[in-house]
């Protein structure tokens, strides 16, 4: 998977790059619109991360331009404006997803994976743990072929944990994943705990093994040996 990171803030671009390299993506970085435009004309990318607040280019115009050479690339727009209007405009211009600054790198990864599964038809959409099977695309959880009824939030939480297996996810990351970055009073709340509790209850009706481990004061980890 080849990713082009278009971000004028060098420090942020290099953080995204080093994270994605670790996740086994191939990365190019463009610090301005002109470089990005050249790179897009020469190379072919699977993903383009685009900060629309570029100094020398109207970011969304780059999508139009890039679609000529890189018709198959998927565009994730990054913006600090966080305005719905910008978001809709981005989709109009052909953006596939949208992330508001600041965003969690894990969230970015999960968006890339989601697009991969959706667009490239990766077989990785089905993941097994014990006698359970979770299908992230078709959105179901089965235990020995018996479907388990989960709410939307429970399913989102479980799939996010499973996709980031063996990695500690803090409450903030989980909260942001299922609620987005909301204008709410108490950000650092434990609301996510309720859903984890319900989720565990539903899983433990079938299997006593505790798949979701609590990391005190931090968050949760889904443990699955490779």
């Amino acid at each position: 998977m080849r990713v082009l990171i278009i971000e004028d803030e060098k420090s942020l671009a290099s953080e995204i790059e080093s994270f994605l390299l670790k996740e086994h993506y191939k990365c190019d970085v463009a610090l301005n619109g002109n470089t990005a435009s050249e790179l897009l004309a020469v190379n072919s990318y699977d993903f383009v991360l685009l900060d629309i607040g570029l100094p020398d280019y109207y970011g969304l115009d780059l999508i139009k331009e890039a679609k000529e050479y890189n018709a198959d690339a998927y565009f994730i727009v990054i913006t600090a404006r966080g305005e719905l209007e910008d978001k809709l405009k981005g989709f109009d211009y052909g953006a596939d997803d949208y992330l508001a600054k600041p965003f969690s790198l894990l969230e970015l990864n999960s968006r890339l994976q989601a697009i991969s599964r959706r667009k490239f038809g990766h077989s990785a959409s089905e993941i097994k743990f014990g006698d359970f099977v979770i299908d992230i695309n078709k959105r179901f959880l089965n235990y020995k072929k018996i479907p388990i009824d989960l709410t939307k939030k429970e399913f989102d939480l479980l799939s996010y944990l499973v996709l980031n297996k063996n990695r500690v996810l803090d409450r903030m990351q989980l909260t942001e994943h299922i609620w987005g970055s909301f204008f709410e009073e108490d950000y650092d709340s434990n609301y996510v705990d309720v859903h984890i509790k319900n989720l565990r209850k539903k899983i433990q009706e079938h299997d006593s093994q505790s798949w979701i481990k609590t990391i005190r004061g931090i968050g949760y980890k889904f443990e699955l040996s490779e």
Partner: peptide, 9 residues
């Protein structure tokens, strides 16, 4: 928000 984003990453 960009500097915040940098620290966060």
């Amino acid at each position: 928000l960009t500097p915040i984003s940098i620290i966060r990453s």
